[in-house]
Amino acid sequence: MSNPRNYDILIKLLLVGNSGVGKSCLLLRFTDDSFTPSFITTIGIDFKIRTVPLDGQRVKMQIWDTAGQERFRTITTAYYRNAMGILLVYDVTDRKSFEDIQTWYQNVQEHAADDVNKILVGNKCDSDDARVVSYDEGKELADRLNIPFIETSAKSNTNVDEAFFSLSRQIKQRLVDTGMPTSTIGQSGLNIASSGSSSSGKCC
């Protein structure tokens, strides 16, 4: 796994959102193609990996899940630090989770790199009966935050790949735009912080 040749680009993603919105389910669905509503253990895992071909390149996604650790805010800001893309996840059947997106967004603004890519994800879109947040509301919020929006269902496997792929494409595009030659990314390392402020000095 330390062979840098088995992928062209590595990107690090982070899932944030209230507990119970289905972050872990999205992650499992995307990386293992499984959905286990009754018993999932994602607690012990540090991150999940999936390598996918994307527009002719092998993109290795390392995806981190922060569930349950939000209370230790100071020491967990390290998760944000090297994230290149962040999925802000809410549950379309839980209005509070939607309202709290604002808070999550501000956390990201505060702790992640300035140019980190984001996507708003409304999960559990299969539950039409229980839905309390409409598609339009989600779209409106995303437009206000100026980030893309997608509704997903980990349960029925709707749009899950699309959510991750869409974010990955954005990141890839940004890397190309900022002049990072993607062919060398695998070897020279790709670091969001270093690409953002490579010349700045040490922290006080």
């Binding site: 800001t77 390290a78 944000y80 630090r81 603004q109 505060e110 702790h111 790199a113 300035d114 912080a193 402020s197 700045s200 000095g201 040490k202 922290c203 006080c204």
Partner: peptide, 8 residues
């Protein structure tokens, strides 16, 4: 942003 996590 005044986060300490980033270079000041």
């Amino acid at each position: 942003s005044v986060s300490l996590q980033k270079k000041p």
